[in-house]
Nucleic acid binder design. Structure first.
Length: 777
DNA sequence: CAGTGGAGGCTTTTT
DNA sequence: GCCTCCACTG
């Protein structure tokens, strides 16, 4: 990334043309090595690299060369201080960040980088639990349950706890459980808390949920952390082994860690107390996932003598962009002021565009990209379009398609969540983990085998009666066959035959898997269940679905080198823990469409932030809590600070939600951008429709009150009674063009709330007095 | 047992 | 407006 980096920055990253690692020449020359690693670092960065003894807190502002500091610090530890890479652990926020770090480190220290432990907390925990999971009640081959599976278990847990799913949405209940786990509370712990009635109910469900999870031999994301902490606390010898191994522990994106993650890091660092955490409180955007900014405070309490280094120089963005970011973040009250020192030129001012609807907003983005590609050296891959919610990507995608501009979407409808992909994964999981009832129930009648709901209900009932896992009951059916089953067995002979056949097939796969490559197993499976035939008989887009299946198959192909049995486990683990951002490589020549959350840690020369509206950014769900609004503001700050050179902020007058299209008001964050860094707003740039269709060439002047006034009919002493409705486009003699957001009262007595395009913002006007008229859309 | 149709929910953000 | 869940019919 950063194809158009400025010279200063190119020097900083040492990216292009930087010399390659050369063991022969450098490894015996310590001085040269030291120089190489510290070269080009500023004073604070150098301090952060060289502070190798004891706890260290690095506060790293956006674009301050944080990644470079971390990698150089690790390289310094390994090559200058002489710490074995085997003794260094670094936790990152995403797998992608981990891979990137590994890549940079192998350039810095060569093949020894292989010895480093670099990964997300979740993947680290998964690995630990694969080794020692038995100590916390996990059988080998335990599965990692994704959100969808978790919801299935919640459904069952709520039934068992006799909790009404209409009164208590399972997502919210699960949220409470997840939150409890993130602060290391088990079901009893949650129940013991003097919480709300809702939490009381959640605690009851929690107990059943855990029981079900255990019966399935599964863990959810929170369990990975919780169980690893439990393991370290209950098996001191295991903990000690890791504590002695890790001489240095490093945590990136510390502001987005939760209590469990911090507890884990603390445990790991207990041996040497060399713990280095890197973060920026202003970029904390995951509190909804239980990230806890208090970790930074705890760190200073837990390690009183900790050295603190602050990285303040921004090497990424132009001054105009930094000014905008500072203006926005200054709106937060709960915040420690921090400098951001610009190091680049003033740069172009930002463009604020206000469109009439999503389609036009998208069209504006596409047009601007096209223009940049024509008139500037920027490439498509230099551009990113960011938004608050995934749903916003749709209009954008359509516009990109229509204009044949290449784009790549990060996230959205996730590949691994497609039904056909999940079906196949469920089969593989069931083969790998016989206790996985969620997967069993998903595939037992897919394709249709005549094992319907009634039969399954009876079998589930039977499992409960005998108090054994469902899979054992099915196994009984298979072993005994229909003729030898007791007559009391609650299953029709036909269904019993079908169940036996299904179980025969699955156990056949289990026997064969040890001798097969993963891909061979998948092929055998697809053939055995005739999945292609099933797809063809189902939806009309079967070709697309089959492509997805083949795509998954090709991912599995990368596990060719593995020991067959372990390959399957590793494959399933990766599927559970990879995010779609992880696949972003930045080399494809396409514009990136991405949520603001996922954009964290990335940078682009050109950035569009779309949907700058109240209700979207800040999101309506966060608007009644000041803390949450502050998090939204940080999210906006993260978006702005991703940008190196050209920043566009767009909003739309009307926004479709739940199928309805409703008028919107401009985001409060727009008003926090200092006006001096905004270029004259460009509301209906080239060919925008709507207003300009009638206003013609005057479109560019809508922002000038004088011009708008000139367009107002001169002598309208008694205007006919006009009824204004929300959504109507209007023109005001002074404030210019806008849209009615709300109306109170009737006729001439009525008062309307109008959102104006220009600086006027939102105004409440009396219809009888205001020089207001309707404009055709 | 499977397929259809109506009702109701739902959208933050993700490991 | 789209998806999921549930009830009812073939």
């Amino acid at each position: 990334m950063g194809a158009r980096a400025l010279p200063a920055y190119a020097g900083m990253t040492g990216g292009r043309g930087s010399r390659r690692w050369d063991s022969g020449r450098l490894c015996y020359n310590l001085e040269a090595m030291t120089t190489q690693l510290l070269q080009g670092l500023n004073q604070a960065q150098r301090e952060a690299v060289e502070a190798i003894d004891g706890p260290l807190l690095i506060i790293a502002g956006p674009g301050s060369g944080k990644t470079r500091v971390i990698t150089h610090r690790i390289a310094y530890l390994a090559r200058v201080v002489g710490i074995s890479p085997h003794g260094i652990m670094a936790a990152t926020f995403t797998n992608k960040a981990a891979n990137e770090m590994k890549g940079r480190l192998s350039r810095l220290i060569g093949p020894r980088a292989e010895g480093l432990t670099v990964g997300t907390f979740h993947s680290f925990c998964a690995r630990v639990l694969r080794r020692h999971g038995q100590l916390v009640g996990l059988a080998p081959g335990f599965g990692i349950f994704d959100t969808e599976d978790q919801m299935e278990l919640m459904k069952a847990a709520m039934e068992e706890a006799e909790v009404d799913h209409k009164q208590f949405p399972r997502r919210s209940l699960h949220g409470v459980i997840s939150k409890a786990k993130s602060v290391l509370l088990d079901a009893q712990g949650l129940a013991a808390q003097q919480g709300s009635y809702f939490e009381e109910v959640a605690a009851r469900v929690y107990a059943h949920y855990e029981e079900l999870m255990a019966r399935n031999n599964g863990v959810d994301f929170d369990d990975l952390l919780l169980k690893t902490v439990t393991l370290f606390r209950t098996a001191p010898d295991v903990a000690r082994w890791y504590q002695q191994r890790y001489i240095h522990v490093l945590i990136d994106e510390f502001q987005d860690t939760n209590i469990a993650q911090y507890a884990l890091a603390k445990l790991l660092a207990e041996g040497y107390r060399n713990i280095c955490v890197v973060g920026d409180p202003d970029q904390s955007i995951y509190s909804w996932r239980s990230a806890d900014i208090r970790n930074i405070l705890s760190f200073r309490e837990d390690y009183p003598g900790a050295k603190v280094v602050t990285l303040e120089v921004n090497y990424r963005s132009t001054q105009a962009i930094i000014d905008a970011a500072k203006g926005v973040i200054a709106g937060n009250r709960q915040r420690l002021a921090k400098e951001i020192l610009p190091s680049r030129g003033r740069g172009d001012r930002l463009v604020v565009h206000e469109a009439y609807n999503e389609e036009e907003e998208a069209r504006f983005v596409v047009r601007q990209v096209e223009r940049l590609l024509e008139d500037t050296p920027f490439k498509a891959s230099d551009c990113a379009v960011m938004y608050r919610v995934n749903a916003q990507s749709r209009a954008l995608e359509e516009a990109f398609l229509r204009h044949a501009l290449p784009y790549r979407i990060i996230g959205g409808t996730r590949f691994y969540q497609r039904a056909e992909v999940k079906d196949l994964i469920a089969y593989l999981r069931l083969i790998n983990n016989p206790d996985d009832e969620v997967s069993l129930l998903r595939v037992v009648n897919k394709p249709s085998r005549g094992i319907g709901r009634q039969s399954l209900d009876r079998l589930t009932h039977e499992a409960r009666r005998q108090n054994i896992p469902l899979s054992w009951v099915l196994e009984q059916v298979r072993q005994e066959r229909r003729d030898r089953l007791p007559p009391s067995f609650p299953l029709s002979p036909r269904a019993a035959g079908a169940v036996a056949g299904f179980m025969d097939m699955i156990s056949g796969f289990r026997e064969k898997k040890a001798g097969l490559e993963l891909v061979e197993l998948i092929d055998l499976l697809l053939e055995g269940i005739d999945y292609l035939g099933y797809l063809k008989g189902g939806a009309d887009n079967w070709e697309e679905r089959w492509e997805n299946v083949l795509e998954l198959r090709s991912v599995a192909g990368e596990y060719g080198g593995w020991d067959p049995g372990e390959g399957l486990t590793a494959f399933l683990e990766e599927l559970a823990l990879v995010a779609d951002v992880d696949s972003y490589d930045g080399t494809t020549e396409a514009v990136t469409l991405i949520t603001l959350h996922q954009a964290k840690g990335l940078e682009f020369p050109v950035v569009f932030i779309t949907g700058m509206e109240e209700g979207l950014l800040p999101h309506s769900r966060s608007m009644d809590s000041p803390e949450e609004v502050e998090e939204e503001r940080r999210l906006c700050y993260v978006g702005i600070t991703r940008c190196m050179d050209r920043l566009f902020l767009t909003r739309s007058f009307k926004r479709g939600m739940y199928g309805r299209s409703l008028p919107t008001a401009p985001s409060r964050f727009l008003a926090e951008v200092p006006p001096r860094v905004i270029a004259s707003a460009d509301p209906v740039a080239d060919g925008g429709r709507g207003l300009s269709s009638r206003a013609g060439g005057r479109a560019r002047r809508v922002y000038s009150p004088a011009a708008a006034g000139a367009e107002t009919p001169a002598a309208d002493e008694e205007p006919p009674q006009v009824v204004f409705e929300p959504g109507d486009r209007v023109r005001h003699a002074v404030f210019g063009k806008g849209m009615v957001v709300q109306r109170a009262g009737e006729g001439r007595e009525s008062e309307v709330t109008v959102a104006f395009l220009g600086d006027a913002g939102i105004k409440r006007l009396l219809v009888s007095f205001a020089p207001l008229q309707k404009v055709e859309g």
